[in-house]
């Protein structure tokens, strides 16, 4: 079990205002992770809120010596993968209806463009862990940062990404050709 070490408590934990600022600064990152793992808008909303909750719960363990984005990526990806693994069809939605407070929402008009939709469909075909790798790479993180977030070696990141990128590129071209209006 991973726990916060005492050495990590370097500063006072962030308060709600600081967390709100942090969410405002990185809301795009969080939404992109949610987009990569959930097709359904309600599910995305749930994931984003769950990420906000986990950021709040983990705020005491945040070590300011490390990049903010590393911390956020870890939490966002862990939440999204766990959410992805739950069986949506068996979830009891009744409990969460009143929890759908609109807190960090993209405007309804924001629909991904055609290219993004094709890309998201290609990402859909990847495993939950490969998705994490691709999202981090698409967001222009270097291999060392990706390795730090995922907990694998830098060389492993390189070889895996090389393979996945080829697969993704071919899938993208096939999908774009097969359905140009998508």
């Amino acid at each position: 079990m991973r726990r916060a070490s005492p050495a990590n408590h370097l500063a006072a934990p962030m308060d709600a205002t600081e967390l709100t600022d942090l969410l405002r600064r990185h809301a795009g990152l969080i939404h992109k992770v949610a987009f990569a793992y959930c097709r359904d808008a309600t599910d995305r909303e749930d994931v984003v809120q769950e990420i906000a909750v986990q950021l709040w719960r983990s705020r005491e363990r945040y070590d300011p010596r490390f990049k903010e984005t590393t911390w956020i990526y870890r939490i966002a990806l862990n939440v999204a993968i766990s959410f992805h693994r739950r069986e949506f069809r068996h979830r009891d939605r009744h409990l969460s209806i009143d929890l759908h407070a609109i807190t960090i929402t993209a405007a309804p008009a924001v629909e991904p463009g055609e290219d993004v939709q094709v890309l998201l469909r290609c990402i859909d075909d990847l495993s939950a862990l490969d998705k994490a790798l691709v999202v981090l790479d698409l967001d222009d993180n270097d291999h060392a940062s990706i390795a730090e977030v995922l907990g694998i070696s830098v060389s492993n990141v390189g070889t895996k990404l090389g393979r996945i990128k080829d697969k993704l590129r071919v899938a993208f071209e096939q999908r774009a050709r097969a359905n140009p209006t998508e």
Binding site: R57, Y62, W71, R74, N78, V79, E148
Partner: peptide, 8 residues
Amino acid sequence: LDYSGRVT
């Protein structure tokens, strides 16, 4: 359980 740990 601390979700801020490494994903794997």
